[in-house]
Simulated assay, not measured.
Amino acid sequence: MSLLEHMPVTRRGRGLTLVLAAGMWAGLYALNERLWDWILYDGFGMDSADRVTETVHFFVYDTVKIALLLVLIIFVVTYLRSYMSVERTRALLGGKREGVGNVMAAGLGVVTPFCSCSAVPAFIGFVSAGVPIGVTLSFLIASPMVNEIAIGMLLTLFGVKITAIYVGAGLLIAIVAGWILGRMGVQKWVEPFVFETKLRGQPVDPSRALNFDDRVTMGIEEVGSVLRKIWPYLLVGIGLGALIHGWVPTEFFTTYAGPGSTFGVLIAIVIGIPLYSNAAGIMPMVQALFEKGLPMGTLLAFMMAVVALSLPEMILLRRVLKPQLLAAYVGVVGIGIVMVGYLFNFLLT
Results as ranks from 00 to 15, higher is better:
43 G>F: 00
174 A>G: 10
246 G>F: 02
236 V>W: 04
322 K>Y: 10
2 S>W: 07
346 F>C: 14
287 Q>R: 07
67 A>Y: 07
109 G>P: 02
256 Y>S: 10
274 P>Q: 11
101 G>Q: 03
71 V>R: 10
255 T>V: 11
265 V>F: 05
140 L>I: 11
144 P>M: 10
202 Q>S: 13
33 E>M: 04
26 A>C: 09
118 S>N: 07
100 V>E: 14
250 T>G: 01
16 L>Y: 00
13 G>Q: 12
189 W>C: 01
51 R>F: 10
309 L>I: 00
208 R>T: 12
27 G>N: 09
238 I>A: 09
135 V>C: 10
245 H>A: 06
120 V>P: 05
127 V>L: 13
128 S>G: 13
226 V>Y: 11
59 F>K: 07
46 M>C: 03
178 G>L: 12
243 L>S: 08
74 I>L: 06
320 V>P: 12
123 F>D: 05
314 M>C: 04
304 M>K: 07
302 F>L: 14
22 A>N: 01
326 L>H: 07
103 V>Y: 04
297 G>F: 12
322 K>S: 04
64 V>P: 03
228 R>P: 02
195 F>D: 03
95 G>E: 05
75 F>W: 09
265 V>T: 12
25 W>Q: 02
293 G>L: 11
26 A>I: 06
53 T>N: 08
234 L>W: 03
127 V>N: 03
266 L>S: 14
181 L>V: 08
10 T>G: 12
184 M>P: 02
54 E>S: 14
293 G>P: 10
348 L>I: 14
179 W>Y: 15
215 R>E: 13
269 I>S: 01
324 Q>C: 00
175 I>V: 15
338 V>P: 01
182 G>Y: 05
6 H>V: 02
112 T>S: 13
16 L>F: 05
327 A>W: 11
241 G>W: 01
10 T>V: 11
138 S>Q: 12
215 R>A: 09
346 F>S: 15
152 G>I: 04
157 L>W: 02
134 G>W: 09
340 V>H: 02
304 M>D: 05
106 A>Q: 02
181 L>D: 03
266 L>Y: 11
325 L>F: 15
307 V>P: 10
222 E>I: 08
68 L>Q: 01
149 I>Q: 04
205 D>N: 15
72 L>R: 03
284 P>G: 09
290 F>K: 05
229 K>Q: 15
194 V>Y: 06
333 V>I: 15
150 A>T: 08
162 I>P: 00
294 L>T: 09
327 A>D: 10
249 P>W: 04
333 V>Q: 00
301 A>I: 05
338 V>N: 06
120 V>Y: 00
1 M>P: 05
184 M>W: 00
3 L>V: 15
212 F>K: 05
6 H>Q: 05
140 L>M: 14
105 A>D: 01
61 Y>F: 13
253 F>G: 10
250 T>V: 14
288 A>T: 08
310 S>F: 11
329 Y>M: 12
234 L>Q: 06
297 G>Y: 10
230 I>V: 15
50 D>L: 04
49 A>R: 15
